[in-house]
């Protein structure tokens, strides 16, 4: 349990840093060029770490289902949808909805054992937990930097 939470915390802090770095790249380049660079480096880093930890095993052929080859398209979907929502809504509002949606779908996928996950039975306690987190996200995002900047620009 603790190891799992620790790993998720590491992932989250790196995502937070990556978001800042990527947006710095995005200040100079458009979103497709930025996405291409980000995924290219992700690919090279994964390949390198794979070699470090597993040696040539990383290149061993495994039987795969066809859709595995298209899994990278999910990442393209992420970028497209998040960028489009940020264009149409205030950034803080967009990100709050994205995060709430992430949690909502996580609960649904756990409950139904989506894609071979071990089903985690849905309980009232889980719903309460997720709702409290969503309220926390909205509170955290309320009155934050981006909106102030927008007000400054507006005034």
């Amino acid at each position: 349990m603790l190891l799992g939470i620790l790993l998720a915390l590491i992932a989250g802090s790196l995502v937070g840093m990556q978001n800042i770095f990527n947006s710095k790249v995005n200040e100079h380049a458009n979103s497709w060029a930025t996405t291409t660079l980000v995924l290219c480096l992700g690919f090279l880093a994964s390949l390198t770490l794979g070699f470090v930890f597993e040696g040539s095993q990383i290149l061993a052929f495994h039987p795969m289902q066809t859709w595995y080859w298209f899994s990278g398209l999910i990442g393209v979907g992420v970028v497209t949808c998040v960028v489009q929502s940020m264009k149409r809504l205030r950034p803080t509002v967009a990100i709050s909805i994205v995060m709430a949606s992430q949690l909502g779908f996580a609960l649904i996928m756990d409950t139904y054992g989506f894609l071979g996950l071990k089903p985690v039975p849905f309980t009232f306690k889980q719903l309460i937990g997720v709702l409290i987190i969503i309220v926390g996200i909205v509170l955290f995002k309320s009155n934050s930097r981006e909106e102030k900047q927008q007000k400054e620009i507006a005034s």
Binding site: G12, S13, G16, M17, M99, L103, V130
Partner: peptide, 18 residues
Amino acid sequence: LIGVTVSISALLIAQLSM
């Protein structure tokens, strides 16, 4: 190790704390 819901929750906390 811990399922999707708890993983995503912990990930979001770390992301916002960052």
